[in-house]
Simulated scan of single mutants.
Amino acid sequence: MKLKKVSKFMTAFVLSLTMICTAMPLNVNAETMQGPEVDYDFDGKKEYPKILFQYDEYGNRFMTLLSMQMVRRIGMENDYISNEIDINPFKYRGSDVRVVDLNPKDKQKEIVIDYSEDGAQSYAEVFSFKNGTLTKLATIDTYPGFTNGRTIESSMNKKTNQLEIFSCSFYPFQHTYYRKYKLENGKLKDVTPNETNANIFDKPLKIKAKKSIKVLNQKMNKKLFYINSGETLTVLATNRKSQYIKVKNSAGKIGYVPITTKEWRNDMDFDRGYGDHRLKQYPNISMYEMFDDLPGFN
Protein backbone atom coordinates (compact mmCIF):
# COMPACT_ATOMS: atom_id res chain seq x y z
CA MET A 1 0.00 0.00 0.00
CA LYS A 2 2.82 2.42 0.92
CA LEU A 3 4.66 1.44 -2.26
CA LYS A 4 1.66 2.44 -4.38
CA LYS A 5 1.45 5.81 -2.61
CA VAL A 6 5.17 6.44 -3.15
CA SER A 7 4.83 5.41 -6.80
CA LYS A 8 1.88 7.78 -7.33
CA PHE A 9 3.79 10.60 -5.59
CA MET A 10 6.90 10.11 -7.77
CA THR A 11 4.78 10.00 -10.92
CA ALA A 12 3.04 13.26 -10.00
CA PHE A 13 6.38 14.86 -9.08
CA VAL A 14 7.99 13.90 -12.40
CA LEU A 15 4.97 15.18 -14.36
CA SER A 16 4.96 18.52 -12.52
CA LEU A 17 8.72 18.89 -13.02
CA THR A 18 8.29 18.17 -16.74
CA MET A 19 5.58 20.84 -17.00
CA ILE A 20 7.78 23.38 -15.18
CA CYS A 21 10.78 22.66 -17.40
CA THR A 22 8.67 22.83 -20.54
CA ALA A 23 7.25 26.23 -19.56
CA MET A 24 10.69 27.75 -18.94
CA PRO A 25 12.53 29.40 -21.85
CA LEU A 26 15.30 27.22 -23.24
CA ASN A 27 17.95 29.98 -23.36
CA VAL A 28 20.45 27.72 -21.64
CA ASN A 29 23.51 29.51 -23.04
CA ALA A 30 22.06 33.01 -22.90
CA GLU A 31 24.13 35.85 -21.48
CA THR A 32 23.30 39.38 -20.39
CA MET A 33 24.72 42.81 -21.08
CA GLN A 34 23.98 46.09 -19.37
CA GLY A 35 23.06 49.41 -21.00
CA PRO A 36 23.65 52.90 -19.53
CA GLU A 37 22.46 53.36 -15.94
CA VAL A 38 20.58 56.67 -15.63
CA ASP A 39 17.28 58.03 -14.32
CA TYR A 40 15.12 57.18 -17.36
CA ASP A 41 11.75 58.22 -15.91
CA PHE A 42 12.88 61.24 -13.83
CA ASP A 43 11.72 59.82 -10.50
CA GLY A 44 15.09 60.35 -8.79
CA LYS A 45 16.15 56.68 -9.13
CA LYS A 46 18.48 55.15 -11.69
CA GLU A 47 17.69 52.13 -13.85
CA TYR A 48 19.58 50.25 -16.54
CA PRO A 49 18.45 48.07 -19.45
CA LYS A 50 19.44 44.44 -19.05
CA ILE A 51 19.58 42.69 -22.42
CA LEU A 52 19.46 38.94 -22.84
CA PHE A 53 21.51 37.69 -25.79
CA GLN A 54 23.03 34.50 -27.13
CA TYR A 55 26.17 33.85 -29.18
CA ASP A 56 25.88 31.57 -32.19
CA GLU A 57 27.22 28.04 -32.28
CA TYR A 58 30.34 29.10 -34.19
CA GLY A 59 31.78 31.30 -31.48
CA ASN A 60 31.47 34.97 -30.60
CA ARG A 61 31.29 36.45 -34.10
CA PHE A 62 27.50 36.82 -34.16
CA MET A 63 24.98 37.33 -31.39
CA THR A 64 21.20 37.11 -31.17
CA LEU A 65 19.48 39.74 -29.03
CA LEU A 66 16.51 38.11 -27.30
CA SER A 67 14.81 40.42 -24.80
CA MET A 68 15.26 43.43 -22.54
CA GLN A 69 14.14 44.48 -19.04
CA MET A 70 14.75 47.55 -16.91
CA VAL A 71 16.53 46.89 -13.61
CA ARG A 72 16.82 49.19 -10.58
CA ARG A 73 19.45 48.52 -7.93
CA ILE A 74 18.49 48.57 -4.24
CA GLY A 75 21.58 48.19 -2.08
CA MET A 76 23.61 45.28 -3.39
CA GLU A 77 20.64 43.58 -5.01
CA ASN A 78 18.65 44.23 -8.18
CA ASP A 79 15.23 44.06 -6.56
CA TYR A 80 13.13 45.89 -9.17
CA ILE A 81 12.59 44.40 -12.62
CA SER A 82 10.17 45.83 -15.19
CA ASN A 83 8.20 43.95 -17.80
CA GLU A 84 10.24 41.97 -20.34
CA ILE A 85 10.04 43.00 -23.99
CA ASP A 86 11.20 41.03 -27.03
CA ILE A 87 13.88 42.23 -29.43
CA ASN A 88 13.93 41.13 -33.07
CA PRO A 89 15.43 37.60 -32.99
CA PHE A 90 18.03 37.94 -35.75
CA LYS A 91 21.77 37.33 -35.73
CA TYR A 92 23.84 40.50 -35.46
CA ARG A 93 27.44 41.38 -36.11
CA GLY A 94 27.33 43.81 -33.23
CA SER A 95 25.16 46.27 -31.38
CA ASP A 96 25.39 49.53 -29.48
CA VAL A 97 23.04 50.57 -26.66
CA ARG A 98 22.67 54.28 -25.93
CA VAL A 99 20.40 56.64 -24.05
CA VAL A 100 18.81 59.72 -25.67
CA ASP A 101 16.23 62.32 -24.67
CA LEU A 102 13.96 62.89 -27.68
CA ASN A 103 11.57 65.21 -25.86
CA PRO A 104 12.96 67.12 -22.85
CA LYS A 105 9.43 68.14 -21.85
CA ASP A 106 7.96 64.64 -21.34
CA LYS A 107 10.17 63.63 -18.38
CA GLN A 108 11.45 60.40 -19.87
CA LYS A 109 14.53 59.24 -21.70
CA GLU A 110 14.67 56.74 -24.52
CA ILE A 111 16.90 53.77 -25.32
CA VAL A 112 18.28 53.23 -28.81
CA ILE A 113 19.86 49.97 -29.91
CA ASP A 114 21.81 50.17 -33.18
CA TYR A 115 22.73 46.86 -34.76
CA SER A 116 23.74 45.21 -37.99
CA GLU A 117 22.17 41.89 -38.95
CA ASP A 118 24.08 38.95 -40.35
CA GLY A 119 23.67 39.62 -44.08
CA ALA A 120 24.49 43.36 -43.89
CA GLN A 121 20.99 44.68 -43.14
CA SER A 122 20.89 47.29 -40.39
CA TYR A 123 18.28 48.40 -37.86
CA ALA A 124 17.69 50.76 -34.98
CA GLU A 125 15.19 49.91 -32.25
CA VAL A 126 13.85 52.65 -29.99
CA PHE A 127 12.33 52.01 -26.53
CA SER A 128 10.83 54.18 -23.81
CA PHE A 129 10.50 53.57 -20.06
CA LYS A 130 7.71 55.43 -18.28
CA ASN A 131 5.47 54.68 -15.28
CA GLY A 132 7.39 51.47 -14.69
CA THR A 133 6.67 50.09 -18.17
CA LEU A 134 9.13 49.40 -20.97
CA THR A 135 7.66 50.03 -24.44
CA LYS A 136 9.03 49.62 -27.95
CA LEU A 137 8.46 52.82 -29.96
CA ALA A 138 9.80 51.72 -33.32
CA THR A 139 11.99 49.39 -35.33
CA ILE A 140 13.70 51.43 -38.04
CA ASP A 141 14.89 49.44 -41.03
CA THR A 142 17.83 51.18 -42.69
CA TYR A 143 18.30 48.59 -45.43
CA PRO A 144 20.66 48.07 -47.04
CA GLY A 145 23.51 47.80 -44.62
CA PHE A 146 27.05 48.11 -45.84
CA THR A 147 29.22 45.14 -46.74
CA ASN A 148 32.43 47.15 -46.31
CA GLY A 149 32.11 47.01 -42.53
CA ARG A 150 30.26 50.30 -41.98
CA THR A 151 27.05 49.72 -40.02
CA ILE A 152 24.14 51.83 -38.91
CA GLU A 153 24.75 54.84 -36.70
CA SER A 154 22.25 56.98 -34.85
CA SER A 155 22.88 60.33 -33.23
CA MET A 156 20.86 62.86 -31.27
CA ASN A 157 20.57 66.39 -32.64
CA LYS A 158 20.12 68.43 -29.47
CA LYS A 159 19.20 71.60 -31.34
CA THR A 160 16.16 70.01 -33.01
CA ASN A 161 15.55 67.16 -30.49
CA GLN A 162 15.59 64.75 -33.41
CA LEU A 163 17.06 61.28 -33.72
CA GLU A 164 19.15 61.12 -36.89
CA ILE A 165 19.68 57.70 -38.45
CA PHE A 166 22.54 57.13 -40.89
CA SER A 167 20.97 55.41 -43.89
CA CYS A 168 21.28 54.61 -47.59
CA SER A 169 19.25 55.42 -50.71
CA PHE A 170 19.29 54.35 -54.36
CA TYR A 171 17.78 57.60 -55.65
CA PRO A 172 18.95 58.39 -58.26
CA PHE A 173 22.08 56.35 -57.51
CA GLN A 174 23.41 54.84 -54.31
CA HIS A 175 24.44 57.30 -51.61
CA THR A 176 24.15 57.92 -47.87
CA TYR A 177 22.01 60.41 -45.97
CA TYR A 178 20.29 60.91 -42.60
CA ARG A 179 16.70 60.02 -41.78
CA LYS A 180 15.20 62.14 -39.00
CA TYR A 181 12.71 61.20 -36.27
CA LYS A 182 10.91 63.16 -33.59
CA LEU A 183 8.94 61.99 -30.55
CA GLU A 184 5.41 63.43 -30.51
CA ASN A 185 2.60 62.34 -28.17
CA GLY A 186 4.51 59.21 -27.20
CA LYS A 187 5.03 58.11 -30.82
CA LEU A 188 8.12 58.27 -32.98
CA LYS A 189 7.39 60.27 -36.14
CA ASP A 190 9.47 60.29 -39.33
CA VAL A 191 10.16 63.98 -40.07
CA THR A 192 12.77 63.48 -42.79
CA PRO A 193 12.37 66.33 -45.30
CA ASN A 194 11.74 65.56 -48.96
CA GLU A 195 15.09 67.12 -49.84
CA THR A 196 17.84 65.17 -48.09
CA ASN A 197 21.59 65.54 -48.03
CA ALA A 198 23.60 63.28 -50.36
CA ASN A 199 27.02 62.02 -49.30
CA ILE A 200 29.27 59.02 -49.65
CA PHE A 201 29.55 58.20 -45.94
CA ASP A 202 31.30 61.28 -44.48
CA LYS A 203 32.66 62.58 -47.81
CA PRO A 204 31.08 64.78 -50.52
CA LEU A 205 29.44 62.88 -53.38
CA LYS A 206 31.43 63.81 -56.51
CA ILE A 207 30.81 62.34 -59.97
CA LYS A 208 32.02 63.18 -63.48
CA ALA A 209 29.60 64.06 -66.30
CA LYS A 210 30.00 62.17 -69.57
CA LYS A 211 27.66 64.57 -71.39
CA SER A 212 26.76 68.25 -71.14
CA ILE A 213 24.01 68.79 -68.52
CA LYS A 214 21.65 71.76 -68.33
CA VAL A 215 21.18 73.01 -64.74
CA LEU A 216 18.01 74.90 -63.79
CA ASN A 217 16.70 77.13 -61.00
CA GLN A 218 14.63 75.60 -58.20
CA LYS A 219 11.33 76.26 -60.02
CA MET A 220 12.74 74.31 -63.00
CA ASN A 221 11.72 77.05 -65.44
CA LYS A 222 15.02 78.82 -66.11
CA LYS A 223 18.47 77.67 -67.20
CA LEU A 224 21.26 78.77 -64.86
CA PHE A 225 24.35 77.15 -66.39
CA TYR A 226 25.72 74.02 -68.05
CA ILE A 227 27.92 71.30 -66.62
CA ASN A 228 30.30 70.37 -69.41
CA SER A 229 31.20 66.87 -70.51
CA GLY A 230 34.19 65.69 -68.45
CA GLU A 231 33.46 68.17 -65.63
CA THR A 232 33.22 66.96 -62.02
CA LEU A 233 30.11 67.98 -60.11
CA THR A 234 29.13 67.62 -56.46
CA VAL A 235 25.69 66.21 -55.63
CA LEU A 236 24.50 68.21 -52.62
CA ALA A 237 21.00 66.78 -52.13
CA THR A 238 18.24 64.69 -53.68
CA ASN A 239 14.46 64.96 -53.65
CA ARG A 240 12.46 61.86 -54.57
CA LYS A 241 9.07 63.57 -54.27
CA SER A 242 9.87 66.46 -56.60
CA GLN A 243 12.36 64.30 -58.55
CA TYR A 244 15.55 66.31 -58.82
CA ILE A 245 19.14 66.43 -57.67
CA LYS A 246 20.76 69.57 -56.30
CA VAL A 247 24.25 70.01 -57.71
CA LYS A 248 27.28 72.29 -57.57
CA ASN A 249 29.69 72.71 -60.46
CA SER A 250 33.46 73.14 -60.28
CA ALA A 251 33.05 76.95 -60.17
CA GLY A 252 30.82 76.75 -57.09
CA LYS A 253 27.52 77.53 -58.86
CA ILE A 254 24.47 75.67 -57.48
CA GLY A 255 21.35 74.53 -59.32
CA TYR A 256 18.88 71.71 -59.96
CA VAL A 257 18.68 68.87 -62.46
CA PRO A 258 15.26 67.19 -63.01
CA ILE A 259 15.07 63.39 -62.76
CA THR A 260 12.56 61.07 -64.42
CA THR A 261 11.69 57.73 -62.85
CA LYS A 262 9.72 54.70 -63.93
CA GLU A 263 6.85 54.01 -61.55
CA TRP A 264 7.85 52.53 -58.19
CA ARG A 265 6.33 49.11 -57.49
CA ASN A 266 5.35 49.91 -53.91
CA ASP A 267 5.89 52.27 -50.99
CA MET A 268 8.99 50.35 -49.87
CA ASP A 269 10.61 50.88 -53.27
CA PHE A 270 9.86 54.62 -53.00
CA ASP A 271 11.24 54.77 -49.45
CA ARG A 272 14.50 53.11 -50.49
CA GLY A 273 14.76 54.94 -53.79
CA TYR A 274 14.70 51.90 -56.07
CA GLY A 275 13.73 52.46 -59.68
CA ASP A 276 15.12 53.22 -63.12
CA HIS A 277 16.19 56.85 -62.59
CA ARG A 278 17.39 59.00 -65.48
CA LEU A 279 17.99 62.66 -66.17
CA LYS A 280 14.84 64.18 -67.66
CA GLN A 281 16.85 65.80 -70.48
CA TYR A 282 18.34 62.39 -71.35
CA PRO A 283 15.44 59.93 -70.80
CA ASN A 284 16.99 57.19 -72.96
CA ILE A 285 20.40 57.18 -71.29
CA SER A 286 21.10 55.34 -68.02
CA MET A 287 22.90 56.93 -65.09
CA TYR A 288 25.94 54.74 -65.75
CA GLU A 289 26.13 56.15 -69.29
CA MET A 290 25.74 59.70 -67.94
CA PHE A 291 28.32 59.69 -65.15
CA ASP A 292 31.66 58.25 -64.13
CA ASP A 293 32.62 57.51 -60.51
CA LEU A 294 29.08 56.59 -59.42
CA PRO A 295 29.21 55.20 -55.85
CA GLY A 296 28.35 51.62 -54.99
CA PHE A 297 28.57 49.73 -51.69
CA ASN A 298 27.52 46.18 -52.66
Rank of each mutant, 00 (worst) to 15 (best):
N161M: 07
N217F: 09
T192L: 06
K158N: 14
K136S: 14
E164T: 03
P193S: 02
N221Q: 09
T176A: 05
K158T: 15
G132D: 00
K130W: 00
V126P: 06
P172W: 02
C168Q: 06
V191P: 08
F225Q: 07
S167W: 00
I140E: 01
L163C: 11
S169F: 05
T135R: 13
S154A: 12
D202T: 14
T160D: 13
Y181C: 07
I140C: 01
M156I: 08
Y181L: 05
N217G: 10
R150S: 10
F170I: 01
K214Q: 15
K206E: 07
P204Y: 07
L163I: 11
Y143A: 09
V215F: 12
K159N: 15
N161A: 10
G149K: 05
T139F: 00
Y123H: 13
Y177G: 02
T160N: 10
P172H: 04
N221G: 07
F166S: 05
F173E: 08
I200H: 09
T151V: 09
G149H: 07
A198G: 10
L205H: 01
K189M: 14
F173N: 07
T139Q: 10
K223V: 14
Q174R: 06
K214Y: 07
A198K: 05
S169N: 06
T135I: 10
A124N: 13
T142M: 12
N185R: 06
Q218S: 15
K158S: 13
P172S: 05
R179C: 05
V191T: 13
F129A: 03
T196Q: 08
L134Q: 00
I140A: 02
M220D: 03
F201N: 11
V191A: 08
I152E: 07
T133S: 11
L224H: 08
E153Q: 13
A198D: 02
Y181I: 05
N197A: 11
S169T: 14
S128C: 07
F201H: 10
K187Q: 14
N157M: 08
R150P: 00
I152Y: 10
F170A: 15
T133V: 15
K203G: 02
P144M: 11
Y171I: 01
K211M: 06
I140G: 01
K219M: 10
K211A: 09
L137E: 03
S154W: 05
N131F: 05
E195D: 03
I207N: 02
